[in-house]
């Protein structure tokens, strides 16, 4: 039997943008894979191409060199098979739709029947703790609640991979803690692999099986840390010496990588 393919596989990937000031090399020779069900975070200095990495996997960008595979297929066919969902930094909810209608959007686009659509959306809304807000419009929600709705929207297609681009960077510290904890619960409940881009070292340590540290532009993989904190991880684990230890290791790696 074949070993099942990785959720995401980057193979010597390079990306060069053509801009008005000339060619900008965003990523160089990046090889990285995320196993099925694995939680991998990417950290790196601003502008090092972390988001570019996600956009490659999401079929928003194509690499200039190298290969990207999502569950052994091209990102485009994985996208059409609805194998993954993307969660953006900005929740990108449609302001004229209610929470329920926003969450239903991917299924609506996929042509799923009304009833299944409704069931799955309600389920996803419950999973992110937004039950009771189905009829609210985005403007009536707090930043944290909007991001929950965006996560629910990502979950409705029951993806095997979540691509998350700094999803909690705009919420306050306490809300972020709570959302982190809930994300872990969702992750273990759904069994999806997660590729998570963040600025926060503590967040990466708390969430991840593995942390990938990128260098400054052009982004290259500097090192990988396998975080062996026991699971399930309660929020309190953030304040244990082991977590501090991992955070300072990651910080050191990031400082070296960004030099």
């Amino acid at each position: 039997m074949h070993p099942s393919p990785a959720a995401v596989q980057f193979d010597r990937v390079g990306v060069t943008f053509q801009s008005q000031v000339g060619a900008v090399e965003a990523l160089r020779d990046v090889s990285l894979s995320v196993a099925e069900g694995e939680f991998v975070s990417v950290i790196g200095a601003s502008g090092c191409g972390k988001s570019t990495l996600l956009r490659l996997a999401a079929d928003v960008l194509t690499p200039s060199s190298g290969k990207v595979k999502v569950f052994g297929e091209t990102p485009a066919s994985a996208r059409r098979a609805r194998a993954f969902s993307m969660v953006f930094q900005d929740p990108a909810l449609l302001p004229w739709r209610t929470v329920l209608a926003n969450v239903e959007l991917p299924l609506e686009v996929a042509g799923t029947g009304q009833q299944i659509r409704r069931e799955r959306a309600v389920e996803a809304i419950a999973l992110v703790g937004l039950s009771g807000f189905e009829g609210a419009r985005p403007a009536q929600l707090s930043g944290g609640m909007r991001q929950r709705a965006a996560i629910a929207r990502a979950l409705t297609v029951q993806p095997k991979l979540l691509l998350m681009d700094e999803p909690f960077s705009a919420v306050d510290e306490l809300t972020r803690d709570r959302l982190n904890q809930e994300l872990l619960a969702i992750w273990s409940r759904t069994g999806a692999a997660i590729l998570f881009v963040t600025h926060s070292i503590e967040e990466a340590v708390y969430l991840s099986d593995r942390i990938v540290v990128l260098t400054g532009r052009p982004g290259q993989v500097y090192s990988e840390l396998r975080v062996d904190l026991p699971r399930p991880r309660a929020l309190e684990i953030k304040r244990t010496p082991a977590a501090f230890e991992w955070s300072s290791r990651a910080r050191l790696a990031l400082e070296e990588a960004s030099r």
Binding site: V60, R79, R82, F84, M86, L105, V109, A110
Partner: peptide, 22 residues
């Protein structure tokens, strides 16, 4: 906005769906 466009792309919406829904 760019993010809505990318969202519609990642959920494999057609040009027509993107037009009508967004």
């Amino acid at each position: 906005d760019q993010q809505s466009l990318e969202l519609m792309h990642t959920i494999s919406a057609s040009t027509w769906q993107t037009f009508v829904k967004v």
